[in-house]
Amino acid sequence: MNPILFFTAFLGVFILINMYISKRLIAKLDIKDKYKLYLRVFLIVNFFGIIGYMLGRYYVDIPNWLYFLFSLPIGILFLLFCTAIIYDISRVILHHSPISQKRRNFFKRSLDISSLVVASSLSARAMYEARYVKLEKVNIKIKNLKKPYKIVQLSDIHIGGLIDKDFIHKIVQRVNALNPDLVVITGDLVDIDVKHAKETLDELKGLNSKYGTFFIVGNHEYFHGIATIIETVKALGIRVLENENVYIGEDGEGFNLAGVYDVFGYRTKTYMPDIDRALHKLQESPTILLAHQPRYIEEVKDSVDLILSGHTHGGQLYPFKFLVNLVQPYISGLHQHNENLQIYVNKGTGFWGPPMRLGASSEITDITIIPL
């Protein structure tokens, strides 16, 4: 997409959201006009923060502390928007309720106060939750597997902005402490021009495991020069699975590990996923497929036992989870798709956009596959 067109459309959406919040929330509050003015000024400042975020992420270099401040407005605005919708619906219901005017006024004042308190509290909580990356331990039983293997899954790190060298260094230390058999990174590793991410990516050289680290591209790699990103990741000693498979373990006792390009490749007509090629010449052992988006499960063959995905961020900010669910069959965690196929969806090790998470913590996934 043309950057100018994307930038214009992006800001246009936020202008409409600001207008809705101003007219359907702020204008309806029973507070003094000067406080309404303060809230509208806050919306304007918040909007300019979003512009600063876009410029800082894709066009100009800014200090990390300033980038942090510019990152918050998107999340704050989204939570305000959700609050405004609930407030608007509640206000209409209250207006038509068969109660006395005195009681209606009481409930209206309560609604006004609680709406502002809830929006502020959720924003603070979301910023707090984003500070921590949780370790999720999962045991997955797989048919015909001969012995257990430990796989550590990272996904949706989104290097760039606040996801910097120090963040990756700490992630690498935590992964190595788990002593995994292999590490897999299921897409959206880089979210800026790779020349600005080189120093941060170099930290991944420190990952230690018995069989190595494996990577597949996500949709965001297509936005920042997918070919260059693939070559850069390969130079780190990480195996990039490009519609292909490798065998993990000793013959007869291991499993096939396959990986495909992301479904976003269908839009670009380059680097398109090809499940037949990815599963070509599999050994007679269980197969694990790395596919960035859970919805790729509809193209998967019967020969696959487990899919490891990401992309959804678990919704990242809880109300957004319902929108994600419209396009993805699974949002997070382990699911039995059919009799033979399971899927695990990582909620993301980093975050995209605001440093905020609500009801969807970042995760490092410690997966132990065990014989059924």
Rank of each mutant, 00 (worst) to 15 (best):
M1V: 08
N2M: 05
P3C: 02
A9M: 12
F10I: 03
L11A: 03
L16R: 02
L16N: 06
I17H: 10
M19Y: 15
S22T: 10
S22F: 10
R24V: 11
I26L: 09
L29A: 06
D33V: 13
K34P: 00
L37Q: 11
L37C: 08
Y38E: 02
G49S: 04
G56K: 09
R57A: 13
Y58H: 13
Y59E: 12
D61W: 11
N64C: 04
S71F: 00
L72C: 14
L72V: 15
I76W: 01
I76D: 00
L80C: 13
F81G: 08
I85D: 08
I86V: 15
I86C: 12
Y87Q: 07
I89N: 07
S90N: 07
R91T: 11
I93P: 00
H96V: 13
I99K: 06
Q101Y: 13
R103S: 13
R104D: 03
S110W: 08
D112I: 06
S115P: 07
S120T: 14
L122M: 11
S123R: 02
A126M: 03
E129P: 07
E129W: 08
R131G: 06
Y132T: 15
L135V: 13
N139C: 04
N139T: 11
I140K: 10
I142N: 03
I142E: 06
N144I: 11
K146N: 10
K146A: 14
K147P: 04
K150N: 10
K150T: 12
I151Y: 01
I151F: 01
Q153M: 03
S155F: 02
S155K: 07
D156Q: 04
D156H: 01
D164P: 12
N176F: 09
V184K: 05
T186W: 08
T186Y: 10
D193T: 09
V194S: 04
K195W: 13
K198S: 10
L201R: 05
L201S: 05
D202P: 05
E203V: 00
L207W: 04
N208T: 14
Y211E: 09
G212Q: 08
V217P: 00
E221D: 01
F223D: 06
I229C: 04
L236T: 01
L236K: 01
R239V: 14
V246R: 04
Y247M: 07
G249I: 00
D251Y: 12
G254D: 04
V260P: 05
Y261S: 03
F264C: 02
T268W: 09
T270E: 14
T270I: 15
Y271F: 15
R277C: 08
A278M: 06
P286Y: 00
H292G: 01
Y296E: 15
E299M: 15
V300F: 05
V304M: 10
L306K: 10
L308E: 09
H311Q: 06
H313S: 07
G314V: 03
G314A: 04
Y318D: 12
P319N: 06
F320P: 12
F322I: 14
V324N: 13
N325I: 05
L326D: 06
V327R: 07
Y330A: 09
I331S: 11
S332A: 14
G333S: 06
H337E: 15
N338I: 02
Q342E: 07
I343H: 00
Y344S: 05
K347V: 00
G348A: 01
F351M: 02
W352G: 01
G353W: 06
M356Q: 12
S361P: 14
S362D: 02
S362V: 10
I367T: 11
